[in-house]
Amino acid sequence: MSQMKNFTKGFIKENPVFVLLLGLCPVLGVTSSAFNGLGMGLATTFVLVGSNSVVSMIKNFIPDKVRIPAFIVIIASFVTIVELVMQAYLPVLFEQLGLFIPLIVVNCIVLGRAEAFASKNSLGSSVVDGLGMGLGFAFALTLLGGVRELLGSGALFDFKFIESDAMLVFVLAPGAFIALGYLIAIINRLNKKNA
């Protein structure tokens, strides 16, 4: 598989959210606006690239039996870095994402890529894989956040199109489930057409 294909597979074909249905908690929890979605997506991308590269570098030294705990410690270290950096430089975003930043640790995508890809492949392709999957995740979060923000408050990236509140329910909890359901249906349809 060429590096280019390795990179782009995360966007539509193997998109972690729309196709693999991994890591749904932050997907639903933080996407009340496009900006929050993007921020969360980029934070996860950083953790994915970091953990993927470290895991692929030390894959030969970790005994098979303790590999999962070892991976979790590596992931948790990168999450702590994100937490501290974000708290220092982006306090507003940190406040809004709240609980979901430490919860990147238990995001199935991160551990899933470490186990399924990085522990078997070279450093180069692991970094590319992490970047592709992470950006695919960020893309999904931004898209869902954008749809919800547009329908729910008539704005996009805080830019107001209409003055009054639109369908407020899309910013609230139920809208997250409903919007994601319809988005997945649309992506399924697109994937079928391509195949």
Partner: peptide, 21 residues
């Protein structure tokens, strides 16, 4: 067809969440 499986489950979860609201 397009809604079968996960999509329809998510939409029903949304309606359930609406009830819990």
């Amino acid at each position: 067809k397009g809604m079968a499986g996960v999509p329809i489950a998510l939409v029903s979860a949304g309606i359930l969440a609406l009830a819990f609201m």
